[in-house]
Amino acid sequence: MAVIEVSRVSKRFKTYDRKEGVWGGIQNLFRRNPREVKAVDDVSFTVDAGEMVGYIGANGAGKSTTIKMLTGILVPSSGSIRANGYVPYRDRHQYTRGIGVVFGQRTQLWWDIAVVESFQLLKRIYDVSDRTFEEQLEVFDAVLNLKPLLYTPVRKLSLGERMRCDLAAAFLHRPRIVFLDEPTIGLDVVAKENIRQFLKRINAELQVTVVLTTHDLSDIEELCRRVLIIDRGHLLFDGSLEGLRERFECKSQIVFELREPGQVDFGRLGFNSTVEFQQLDALRCQAVFDKKQVASAELIKAIVNSLAVRDVMLDDTTIEEIVREIYSRGEVVTR
C-alpha cells in the first residue's frame, strides 16, 4: 500500500543575480535580475508503507527541495503529492502530527535547554501520553543509549550525540513516516553505525516508513532496498539496489600478488579476449573484466592454478562509482 504518492511534481524558484564589487553593489541598490531555476522537474514515485527508501543526489540536485515538499514546507509548482492520506502543504497541521523529520545540519531541539526538556516540550506539542512517552524513551535508550545525554544542554553535545537525540525526538510521537535529511553527515564510523542500527530496528519493529537522503552511500547499502537517484532536478533511477548493481556494474577487478617478483605471461591464463591484464609492479597484477562475460570464480581459479600467488582480492564496483557513472551519462532508468 502506497503511503507516499508523488506524481509529476516540479518546483521552480526565482533567484536574483547579484553583481560583485563596489560599483556592482551600487547597481544592486537599484536593479535586480531575476532568473528562474528548476529545482525539481517532473518527478514521480511512490513509497509503500514500511519501506525504507534512499534518496540520493549531488549537492543542489533537488534532494532537499523534494524533502521540503514531502514534509509540507514547500508547495509544488505543479504536480501532486499525497502522504499518509494528506496533501502535505495544505493539511499541514494534521499531517505534521504523523511525521517525523530530521535535518542533519540543523537540530530541532532547543539549543540551550537540557535534552529531556526539549522532549517534554515536544511531548506537549504532539500530545504524547505519559505512557507512550516513557515507552518510547525506553526503546530509544536501549538502542541509542540516550539516558546519559538527557540532562545535558544540546549545545554541549557532540555532533553524534546530538544526532542520536534528534532522531529520538523525531520518533517520539510515533510517526508513520520519517524523513531524514543527511542523518549521518559529519559523524564518525561508530556514531554512523549506531544510527543505522537504530533505524533498522525501528523500521522493522514499528513498521515506520523511512525516506532518507544521504551523501554516504554506505548508508544506503546498509539500510535501503530501494534507491531513488536525482540529478539536476530529474529522477534518474528508481529501483532496487540489486537492480542498480546489475545494470551498471560493468567492470570488476581482481588484484593479485605473486609469491616471487617476476614478469608474468598473462597469455597462459586463457582470458585474453575478455580480460584486461596489467602488471602493476614486480609483485602485483591487476585484471579488469566484465562480470556478465566472465565469472569471477573461473578467473580466480585460473589465476590460482596457473600462477604462484600469495593473495587474491576481488573488488566490485561500489555504488558510489555507479552513481558517478549515472551522473556522467545522465541516463534515465526507472523500474
Binding site: 564589487g21 563596489v22 553593489g25 551600487i26 544592486n28 541598490l29
Partner: peptide, 12 residues
C-alpha cells in the same frame, strides 16, 4: 574599511 563599505551596500 573597503569590506565594511561593501557589506553595508548589501543592507540597502
Amino acid at each position: 574599511a573597503r569590506i565594511a563599505f561593501l557589506k553595508i551596500l548589501a543592507y540597502r
